[in-house]
Simulated assay, not measured.
Amino acid sequence: MVAIDRANGLLERYAVLARAELPAGAKVFDAHTHLGDDIDGMVGDRDELLAIQQGFGIERSFVFCLDEPDRRPAFTAANDRTLAHAAAAPAELLPFVRLDLDEEPVAEATRCIDRGARGIKLHPRAQRFLPDDPRLEPVFALAAERRVPILIHGGRGLPPIADSLARLLDRHCPPALIVAHAGIVDLAAMAENFAGRAGVFFDTSVWSPLDLLDLYRLVPPEQVVYASDYPYGRQPNSLLMAVRTARASGLDDAEVRAMLHGTAARIADGLEPVTPGAARGAAELSHPVPFLRIHQYLTMASAMLWLRHASDTYGVLGLAINACDARSNGYRAETEQLRELLVATRDLWDLAAQTEDDGDRRRAQRGAFRLVHLASVLAVTNPA
């Protein structure tokens, strides 16, 4: 299909750009990826993930299962698949065990660690618990005893969790705690509790670059690790956003390399964390108004795409395209690039509305989401 071919060509063009913006010789470690089939329909495929890693210089990834249809009992079958995926690519994939606190979490964690799991994944929103749940105590105690890191969901869908998480960490301290999605659920309190605390990290798997700019304002760069959240997060969007926000926050090449690879590699290899310095990001953002308008409309469009609205005829995507009008905005080259992405997004969205096959429709919708997200990242991070 013409629309899909054009979208793929655009993504490859920006993939070249993303690779070019990495520091010279930089390696990448992805601290947050999934494999399997989620109950929401998302699929993480091992061969696809490995191809992405090869294409973008990603040497290793922490990997864990999704919220699988056969997650009961205890994520046993899904965890076994994760271990099998890692066994098939031991140099590239480092498996984490995912736990359900309702179903013998310590026994399942112990079983999987004994079989080679390198860490523990906790998802309080999906599995319906909070950090003050007493059932977490033995899980954190086990991680501390077996010297394995914990990665915990810190994104949408939760009440504030920072204070109770800090109290739990004071009682049982694993070698590393990675708060996923930059801790945006409770970022100010997360920073108050954990900024400067060695062994606590925040991953970069968020939708908006504004979240990462605020993270760097509050948290030292030594506590930030790159993450994509594959298959939800995709390339080249993820790397472009991570690198550009780090640069905008004042990180130098060495610090960007650490964010992209070195810090997560130390976690994986069981090394002591680097002592955190000071937060570096700016408290204020000066950015051209046309780009802010475009980003605003694309945020609205992304929500509609995520909810699989059938189309957006003359809607918010049209507003974003019109905001790219180069006659008066003073940023002709940049807004023409955005317009190109958004016209391709519109065509994919229209294709999805006209397609009867469920699989083809989902591919068109997800392609449109990838393009609109890429445009949103560029709208915030393009140098003015």
Rank of each mutant, 00 (worst) to 15 (best):
P159W: 06
L240Y: 07
V274W: 15
R115T: 07
A379I: 11
W349D: 13
D186N: 10
A258P: 02
G199K: 12
L99I: 00
G270V: 08
A344L: 06
R71I: 04
I321T: 07
A283K: 07
E272Y: 12
A176V: 05
P73K: 12
V97F: 14
L66V: 00
A78L: 10
D347P: 07
L93V: 08
L169Q: 05
I4G: 06
V225A: 07
A278V: 11
A15S: 11
D252C: 04
A364L: 02
P273I: 01
E192S: 14
P221K: 03
A26C: 07
L169I: 00
R147H: 11
T110V: 11
L213R: 13
H373Y: 00
G196Q: 05
A91W: 11
R363S: 11
A191C: 14
L158F: 11
P231W: 10
R128D: 09
A180T: 02
V224T: 10
T33K: 02
L11C: 02
I321K: 09
S205D: 06
D357C: 15
L251F: 09
E284A: 15
A162D: 05
T313G: 05
H85E: 01
A254P: 00
P73N: 13
L136C: 09
L17A: 13
G270M: 14
E104Y: 06
G281C: 05
T345P: 03
L251E: 02
F129G: 05
T76W: 12
A191L: 12
D358S: 14
A384L: 07
L317F: 03
G183H: 01
E108A: 14
P131E: 02
V243G: 06
S376W: 10
K121C: 05
R146L: 01
S205W: 12
P276C: 10
A246Y: 09
A333N: 07
S249L: 08
A188K: 02
A91Y: 13
A379R: 03
R6E: 15
D269K: 15
E21T: 09
H85M: 03
R6F: 15
A282G: 14
H261Y: 13
P105M: 14
L158T: 02
L99G: 01
R244W: 07
F96P: 00
G270K: 12
T381I: 13
I178D: 05
R19P: 06
L151Q: 09
G318A: 09
R171I: 05
T110N: 10
